[in-house]
């Protein structure tokens, strides 16, 4: 699932899809933590998932605000358009 998210991040050039792939990757990492925590019967895996969850929420906030700003500037969601920025 992490590989799927990484593939999506690399293949798609739309900023929204790249953010969604990031979500998938974070989710896959959290799933791995939960499974490891359940395997050894520790609560630490769930703690780490809580941290991943809050980090994903913060990342999505800032990322979507950046997407809005990019759309206002460039009238496009293509990631290649932004790479032509100078300075």
């Amino acid at each position: 699932m992490f590989a799927l998210g990484l593939t999506g991040l690399l293949v798609r050039r739309n900023v929204i899809f790249m953010l969604m792939s990031l979500e998938i990757m974070l989710n896959a990492a959290g799933l791995a933590f939960i499974v490891a925590g359940a395997r050894w019967g520790q609560a630490d895996g769930q703690i780490v998932f809580l941290f991943i969850l809050s980090m994903a929420a913060a990342e999505v906030c800032v990322g979507l605000a950046l997407v809005l700003q990019i759309y206002r500037r460039f009238k496009s969601l293509d990631a290649d358009a932004v790479s032509e920025m100078r300075g």
């Binding site: 941290f51 913060a58 950046l66």
Partner: peptide, 17 residues
Amino acid sequence: LASMLLLGALVGAYHLG
């Protein structure tokens, strides 16, 4: 630290948006 991160995200999203 998570609360600090969320506060930073709040301020950042407000500033960018």
